[in-house]
Design a protein around this nucleic acid. Structure first.
Length: 601
RNA sequence: GCCGCUCUAGCUCAAUGGCAGAGCAACUGUUUUGUAAACAGUAGGUUAUCAGUUCAACUCUGGUGAGCGGCUCCA
């Protein structure tokens, strides 16, 4: 098979699965209609791995309903109803769906009519749906045993929180029973890597009812990882001319009124008052604070770009239903940076930042799982943003050009821009396949103007700089979710909280030697521990494996006599006996090389 | 914030209206071990919390809190 054929047959297979999923959504709707003749249907598309249908029902569904619906779906599939397409006029469609009492569909018909689109319907058995298709030839083509209804949730009609909430039934569907099985197995495996589970098992972070939800507490081990990440990213950024700054957590609300954040995110600001009549807010972003460092003195065009970076906590009063593990919290540690530059410098600044991002994520083996969003404004709602239209146009064009020049293949996503400008967002996936946005680069003409920032150009005129916002790790919290799940807790050695553990075969006989080895390692800068518990060797190995410690150093009689260690790397059964010095040399190089991979980019 | 589900020992989970339990972890003792779980014992609980129904509530009902799955939002 040649390459072209292979890719076109892969595409055909993808299309087929899409048809199965979309058709399954119709079968689900048919099953629901049997169970609830008064059901009013919203929309029911195919999605990644499956499908859903949003439905207005007379009562709340319970999990047991899914089993009943699945049985009904199976019966519809068995009956092998053909999917019959018909193209009808808007008037006819309106009449038909009004008669059926399908008010949501009538609303959709009006939308289609407005857009001047052809209206088509699909009939399968007794269920008729407004649908552009395409579908399988008949319900019987849905492979046996390859679908499953998975969950029920609420979903706003037309994705608008002001609208009524319908009940959404989710299902997964695949081209074969085996693919479904494989997918369910993958989910089970993903559960084991869940950062919340591993965070507890590996003792990286915790939450306290007294401290409150959304306020993660980092344990010593979690803090080591955070600090290592910070050291590295700051080291890299320093080479690109970033200077570290430090700003307070509090500010007058006026700061955020000028930046525009207060207007847009006012309900998500934490207010801080005192009996001395202070009235301040906790910073929800670092940018406005950093603008004031820029503004503290007169800048010349020769000074630019001026690049600041800061890893600090910021606070956002997120909606209660949105906090979850480390992925969404009230106190986020953001690795934030800003470059104040001239228009002619913007492109290079952004390219440099993207290079840092690409190299960093590549070094960690994360790059292949990403896609890039060119997040532009919602053209229908300019009131949601600050700044001038021509600046926005310029920024969006610039980002598109950068995407093309750097072959990022950014996908344009309308309405995803920041308050002050468009951005390139780098999207990744967590263990369960949910998307997370982590690094980002943003162009901002608006903020410098609002703060009256300026520099003196070559002609002696005062002009505003451009601000480029960038986050490489994004927030440490989200970044941790990503790497905990990516490595399933088995971090590369430079990030491992404990890099080596010395395990004496017998604590009584070799405990002293083990302690000596550990101390040597610590003196050399290795994060080492010794296990002097009175457990069996097997148990101690098991414990170390569960903690995902990169190296286990077993010491017994032989080792003590020859001043060696038996090295067992994590996840293997290999044992190599080497001298302590030799091991130390090797591990130091390994730690350094992993760092070097990132630093020497 | 909205829809739904869940909450029992540090962790994972039993007990379906009638005496609150197990395994792991912790602690104590014995064992001193050659590469993923030694043995025995001890302790650990206002069953998230507050109210209600009942002779009797972990169990049923309601409020509150927290967690989970979605929706919405994400500077």
């Amino acid at each position: 098979m040649n390459k072209e054929k292979a890719s076109s047959s892969a595409e055909a297979a993808a299309d087929k699965v899409e048809l199965i999923r979309h058709s399954a959504a119709h079968v689900l709707a048919g099953a629901v209609l049997e169970m609830f003749p008064e059901a009013k249907f919203g929309t029911g598309p195919a999605v990644e791995n499956g499908f859903y249908y949003d439905i207005d029902l007379p009562r709340t569904l319970i999990p047991e309903d899914l089993e009943i619906l699945e049985e009904k779906m199976k019966a519809i599939i068995k009956a092998n109803h053909p999917f019959e397409r018909a193209e009808i006029s808007a008037a006819e469609a309106r009449e038909d769906f009004t008669r059926l009492g399908q008010s949501y569909k009538v609303e959709l018909i009006a939308d289609l009519e407005k857009k001047g689109e052809q209206i088509s319907i699909y009939k399968s058995g007794h269920f008729v749906d407004l649908c552009s298709g395409p579908h399988l030839a008949s319900t019987g083509e849905i492979p046996h045993g390859a679908f499953k209804l998975t969950k029920i949730s609420g979903a706003y009609w037309k994705a608008d929180e002001k609208n009524k909430q319908l009940q959404r039934i989710y299902g997964v569907a695949f081209a074969s029973k085996d693919s479904l099985k494989e997918y369910l197995h993958m989910l089970e495996e993903a559960e084991k890597r869940d950062h919340r589970k591993l965070g507890k098992e590996l003792d990286l972070f915790c939450f306290s009812d007294l401290v409150g939800p959304g306020l993660p507490l980092y344990t010593p081990k979690g803090t080591i990882i955070k600090d290592e990440l910070q050291k590295h990213i700051e080291g890299v950024c320093k080479k690109y001319g970033f200077q570290k700054v430090s700003t307070p957590s509090l500010a007058k609300e006026e700061l955020f009124e000028i930046s525009g954040h207060a207007k847009k995110f006012g309900d998500e600001l934490f207010h801080v008052t005192s009996e001395k009549k202070h009235s301040l807010v906790l910073k929800p972003v670092q940018c406005p604070h950093q603008t004031q460092i820029y503004a503290s003195r007169t800048r010349s065009y020769k000074d630019l770009p001026i690049r600041y970076m800061e890893s600090d906590k910021q606070y956002r009063a997120e909606k209660t239903g949105e906090v979850s593990g480390l992925s969404r919290v009230y106190a986020i540690t953001v690795e934030d940076g800003h470059s104040f530059c001239r228009v002619d410098q913007v492109k290079d600044e952004i390219k440099n930042m993207i290079n840092i991002i690409r190299d960093f994520y590549t070094a960690l083996g994360l790059w292949e799982n990403h896609w890039v969003s060119l997040s532009v404004r919602d053209y229908a709602h300019p009131e949601k943003y600050i700044g001038e239209t021509e600046d926005w146009d310029k920024c969006e064009t610039m980002l598109q050009e950068i995407s093309d020049e750097m072959n990022l293949k950014a996908k344009k996503c309308e309405g995803e821009a920041a308050l002050y400008g468009p951005k390139l967002d780098f999207m990744f996936k967590d263990a369960a396949g949910r998307e997370i946005q982590i690094p980002t680069v943003q162009i901002d003409f608006a903020t410098p103007k609002r703060f009256g920032l300026e520099y003196i150009n070559e002609s002696g005129e005062k002009v505003p700089p451009v601000m480029v916002h960038r986050a490489i790790l994004g927030s440490y919290e989200r970044f941790l979710t990503l790497i905990i799940e990516h490595f399933a807790g088995a971090f590369p050695i430079w990030l491992s909280p404990v890099q080596a553990i010395v395990i004496p075969i017998s604590e009584e006989k070799f405990g002293v030697y083990a302690e000596e080895v550990k101390n040597e390692l610590i003196a050399a800068g290795v994060r080492a521990e010794v296990d002097i518990s009175a457990e069996s060797l097997g148990k101690k190995i098991r414990n170390a494996e569960k903690q995902k410690i990169p190296y286990m150093l077993v010491v017994g009689e032989k080792e003590m006599e020859s001043q060696t260690v038996a090295v067992r790397p994590r996840g293997t059964k290999d044992q190599v006996v080497t001298s302590v010095d030799e091991f130390m040399e090797k591990i130091m190089i390994e730690i350094k090389e992993k760092k070097g991979l990132i630093e020497n980019m």
